[in-house]
């Protein structure tokens, strides 16, 4: 009986371990990973967007004055633009992305203060 139990228990990991060798599929090979340029661009893009959102929030709740807010916003917008340039996006694509950022800023301002903001 003990031998049967042991065989059954060995089968559980054995099947799992051997599965990828026996049933090879395209899923075994990730099409893209974090070493790719796309990942890097995406990460830099998200950092810039998060920075913009944070600056907007800090400004909306009064922790950041207008001069510092403008300076910070400019820095993050430059970073976002650099990423778009590196990706060689078309003018329309860049404009769409920038529009989405502007919309998000308006949304943050509205959420925090209830006021709309003119970009």
């Amino acid at each position: 009986m003990l031998v049967t139990i042991a065989i059954f228990l060995v089968l559980i990991p054995a099947v799992a371990i051997l599965w990828p060798f026996v049933f090879t599929s395209k899923d075994n090979v990730p099409s893209d990973d974090e070493t790719s340029a796309h990942f890097e661009w995406e990460r830099r893009w998200e950092t810039a967007v998060a920075g913009l959102k944070s600056a907007e929030l800090e400004h909306a709740i009064g922790n950041l004055n207008s001069d510092d807010y403008t300076a910070l916003k400019e820095q993050y917008m430059i970073e976002a633009s650099v990423v778009m340039k590196e990706m060689e996006l078309g003018e329309k694509q860049e404009e769409d992305l920038l529009d989405s950022i502007r919309l998000e800023m308006v949304s943050i301002r509205e959420t925090v203060t209830g006021e709309s903001v003119d970009n």
């Binding site: 796309h38 995406e42 998200e46 990423v83 990706m87 996006l89 694509q93 992305l97 989405s100 919309l103």
Partner: peptide, 12 residues
């Protein structure tokens, strides 16, 4: 969806 800045890769 309309208020979210899209993921760069999805957007492109």
């Amino acid at each position: 969806q309309d208020k979210q800045v899209p993921k760069l890769r999805n957007h492109v």
